[in-house]
Nucleic acid binder design. Structure first.
Lengths: 168, 168
DNA sequence: TACAAGATGTGATTGAGTCTCAATAGTGAT
DNA sequence: ATCACTATTGAGACTCAATCACATCTTGTA
């Protein structure tokens, strides 16, 4: 699952793992080898990913000290979400994760054809959200806005395909 | 799962089942007893529901001709979404359905405490969506906007609880 | 009314995610 | 550096939603 790097990243004083260590300490949890491996792996590239991909990369394919078991992958992902390092969203009934720490708030366009996620930012959306919440006396803590459709690439592809068919 | 009836319903010329029959015919599918039972049941009350509730009501608890098996519940729900009679959304990793036919487009506030869905409409949101899509040369077909937080009721409840605790 | 194709139900199966529990490994104190 | 305490891990069993396969039953049609 690739994506467009449309957004600037945000300056942060701590590396993700350092940030995670702070979180772990504040919760009386331990800094372990599997947690380190997973965090380094996840933050080594900026992509949307699902638990399954991680399990493949860290559990199925790997042997030795770099290996992380399936339950631990799930457990650690939850902790990372809890710690604010990752954001979790449900797309097509499947959990997808992305970097949250060191990355600005944003929403997504989801191409139902190639399944790519395109990011965008809109301050207007946040204002709209706050206004709606206020009107309903609702205390908003977060939101999820996903626009479904067909991305530019896939539109071009299907136009090309259509043209080829017209020639037959 | 209850909800607030904040929105007016839209006038439609056909009953849901009639509308579904049209769809079935257009696809060369058949109007069967289980499909009729399920549609009548689903449109007899205006609520958000999940497949599990339906299976309980139509498969687990019922015997005789009104019974609809689990696979058929799932199959028919998909057809109803396909036919535009129901809308499907994923909340907390679980599929939730609501009436689409005869009901205006809207979005939701989701209370993470009582898990109620509150509906609201915003033309502004639709404009925003179209604008974002246009900027990215994206052909938008639908969207999902969910604001997570705590509803008015639950805020009151936790204030009461907090006050009681203060007295101890 | 009979027949071919579509639909249904039973029971098995998949797949994501979680749980249990014995073994292991951080952590803070000595 | 070592110890004791306790959180964490991994293997494998398990749960739950959803789907599949297929023998049997229904529907629309000739």
């Amino acid at each position: 699952m690739t994506e467009q790097f449309a957004l600037e990243s945000v300056d942060v004083s701590l590396q993700p793992m350092e940030r995670f260590e702070e979180y772990l300490q504040s919760k009386g949890k331990r800094v372990t080898q599997p947690r380190r491996v997973l965090v380094e792996h996840v933050f080594s590239k900026h992509e949307h990913f699902d638990a399954d991909a991680l399990i493949d990369e860290l559990s199925t394919q790997v042997k030795g000290p770099q290996r992380v078991s399936r339950p631990t992958v799930y457990r650690t992902l939850n902790e990372l979400v809890e710690a604010g390092l990752l954001r979790k969203m449900e797309i097509g009934g499947r959990a997808v994760y992305e970097h949250d720490y060191g990355y600005p708030d944003h929403d997504h366009l989801y191409c139902t054809q190639c399944q790519n996620l395109i990011e965008f930012q809109s301050t207007e959306l946040v204002e709209l959200r706050n206004r709606v919440a206020r009107e309903q006396n609702f205390r908003a803590s977060s939101h999820r806005f996903i626009i479904n459709g067909i991305c530019e690439e896939c539109q071009k592809k299907s136009r090309r395909k259509k043209r080829r068919l017209d020639l037959i």
